[in-house]
């Protein structure tokens, strides 16, 4: 597959309030093909949020480069939709206006075509009966569905999802996973899905990136060769548990050869 998103030797430092540089990412390189579904798993502190901010163009890496379509990412772009950990809807707007928010916020007014687009997205996430409800009247899962519809509004090529289902209960979470696969099938996108859940990663992704913490590094890349469409039956397959075991093994007992020891700690000074 032709690479669509590439990260080349990306390292990133940020300053603490005391003015000390902390390394969030160290020499991270990977690529994502067009319409590929990539999941990133790893414990807290492995730089997942930094990765999100770099890819969305909200930050520039200290070293290395982030490229989309071969062009370095220097500022936020319309081609990226973000779904956050919390739905973070605007409580004073109803579902439809929340979905339309990116367009209204950017340009002030939505065209009829865009309004129709919003309605079909609301239908796609299964909320057509709730289009004029306020966020406060919706359950957590429903709110996150609105968040997904909002991220898809500008028809992004890349969808970044930052632990989108972690605030949901286990049952809703499973249901949302399958719904996401259906939506991805209906309108294919390049997806970077950040999660804490190993089984969720294996169930959804074409490829799982395993990160290790402090500083955040890529410790292994595992292609998931399970047939699609995936369903509840996929979870019961032997290959599925082999994948989850392998990932769990890598997270808790990493093979050290992948971790490069010598680094450019001294470059930190010119921050």
């Amino acid at each position: 597959m032709k690479p669509f998103v590439t990260l080349d030797n990306v390292s990133h430092y940020y300053m603490t309030d005391e003015g000390k540089p902390v390394q969030a990412l160290k020499d991270v390189s990977f690529s994502i093909g067009k319409n590929e579904f990539v999941a990133v798993v790893g414990p807290s502190g492995c730089g997942k949020s930094t990765l999100l901010r770099l890819l969305s163009g909200l930050m520039q890496p200290t070293h290395g480069s982030v490229n989309i379509f071969g062009m370095p990412v220097t500022e936020p772009r319309d081609e990226i939709g973000i779904v956050f950990q919390q739905p973070t809807l605007l409580p004073w707007l109803n579902v439809t206006d929340n979905v339309l928010f990116p367009i209204k916020h950017k340009r002030g007014r939505a065209t009829d075509k865009e309004k129709a687009q919003a309605q079909s997205l609301i239908k796609m996430v299964g909320l057509e009966d709730f289009a004029s409800r306020m966020p406060g009247e919706l359950s957590g899962g429903m709110q996150q569905r609105v968040g997904i519809a909002r991220a898809l509004l500008l028809d992004p090529d890349i969808l970044i999802m930052d632990e989108p289902f972690s605030a949901l209960d286990a049952l809703t979470r499973e249901e949302m996973g399958f719904d996401l696969l259906r939506i991805w099938n209906e309108s294919p996108k390049t997806v970077l899905f950040i999660t804490h859940s190993i089984s969720e990663a294996v169930l959804l992704a074409d490829k799982v990136l395993i990160m290790s913490p402090r500083p955040g590094r890529l410790s292994e890349e595992i292609p998931i060769d399970l047939p699609r469409p995936r369903s509840a039956a996929t979870v019961r397959e032997k290959a599925f548990s082999e994948y989850t075991d392998r990932i769990r093994q890598q997270i808790y007992h990493p093979k050290t050869e992948n971790i490069t020891a010598v680094t450019d700690e001294k470059k930190v000074v010119n921050l």
């Binding site: 909200l58 605007l90 916020h105």
Partner: peptide, 22 residues
Amino acid sequence: PNELIDLSRSLRAPRYKEIFAI
């Protein structure tokens, strides 16, 4: 929420909109 501010910035909305609309 910081996410909403991030969303506003990722849309490259002018800063006054971040204050007035969010």
